[in-house]
Amino acid sequence: MLINCAAYQDGRKLGDIEVEDISIYVEKPECFVWVALKDPEPAELDKMKEEFGLHELAVEDVRHGHQRPKIEEYGESLFAVMHTIEMNDDGELSVGEMDVFVGPNYVLSVRTRTLHGFQEVRARCEREPQLLKQGAAFVLYALIDHVVDNYLPVLDRLGAEIDDVEDRIFERHNLAASRQIIEDLYSLKRRLVMMQHHVAPLVEAVGKLTGGRIPAICEGMQAYFRDVYDHMDRVVRIIDGRREMIVTAIQVNLGMISLAENEVTKRLGSFAALFAVPTMIAGIYGMNFQSIPELHLQYGYHVCLAVMLGIDIVLFWRFRKAGWL
């Protein structure tokens, strides 16, 4: 589906144009065309390939989709693949794809499997005609910057979930609750690993536009791409930090479970000792021997009960003092 098709000159929008007129404006050195597509049909891609003269391999990548984030150079043009990451109400991540063709006089952006639009990027560029004069390279920068900025709200929500789970770790709970905490932590770790898988490759790709041999189309834009590279590096560092927090939280939760089990073991051991002493004494005097000491005393039974009770009181006091009961 065609979202936008507009021509620009000297940083200002000339107006929307027909797809059939794209090649006319592309041939004008002072103009560039910016086209946006969403989930295009094969026929639409073929038409764009014809109008812009796109490289066949890059078009095939768009047709097949699910490409690794990258920036490739085809002659005087660039082909960039970025992944968008969105979080639904259930906290699950959905990954979309943004493919961008950049030439000296054109920008073609193709987004698939994502509901998030890029109208904000177009509006931002049109509000800054001095920067839009840079042409297609500035649009590429603005698109990458927008994609990277949208990673941060997702990381913030994941960070809030981590904080919530960490608070639950130190609450008194049963084994089922502890198991649920571990499952939640692994779910968070899985989503962060998923984010890193889709974000990290683009860092290396954008790094190629910040220094050394850079494509001719990006000349003079190194500072802007360095800025977005710094943003991406920050995102990757946040992801690494969150993953370390989760690993630590899992270890702490397992430690809390061990402490709880130790507490249960100490309680059981204490109660077993309280019952063991009377059982031992009763067992001794239950033997069928004639010469057991004090066996025939008139108050032997009461003395035996008093000794059992006294020993248990002393043991209970010591266990309570030690914190076992």
Rank of each mutant, 00 (worst) to 15 (best):
K70D: 12
V165K: 00
D145K: 03
M1Q: 08
G300Q: 11
G91W: 08
G255S: 13
R179D: 07
L188H: 00
A6H: 15
I181E: 00
G15E: 14
V199Y: 10
A249L: 03
I24N: 07
R12S: 15
L45S: 00
D163P: 06
G212L: 00
V203Y: 05
K321Q: 15
P153D: 13
C125S: 15
Q222Y: 00
Q251L: 10
E73Y: 04
G11T: 11
G220Y: 04
G159A: 13
P129L: 07
L175I: 07
V199A: 05
S109W: 05
P278E: 05
A282H: 09
A160E: 10
I281M: 06
L315C: 09
H231S: 09
T210F: 01
V247N: 14
Q130N: 12
Q251F: 01
D230F: 01
I162G: 00
V264N: 15
W317C: 15
K13A: 15
M82P: 04
P104S: 15
A200P: 05
F138D: 00
Y285E: 10
A223W: 14
I214P: 10
G310E: 08
L132F: 08
D230R: 11
D164N: 14
F79C: 13
F316C: 13
V303Y: 12
V121N: 14
D164L: 07
F319Q: 03
G91N: 11
L188W: 03
K321A: 07
P42G: 02
G220P: 06
L143H: 08
E244D: 15
I292A: 05
D99F: 00
T84P: 01
L209S: 04
G211R: 02
V110C: 03
L192I: 04
V264P: 07
L54F: 05
A123C: 03
E128Q: 14
I292S: 04
G211Q: 01
F170H: 13
A43G: 02
M195Y: 06
K70P: 06
D61K: 02
E92I: 14
E50A: 15
R190M: 05
T84H: 02
H231K: 06
G255H: 03
N150R: 13
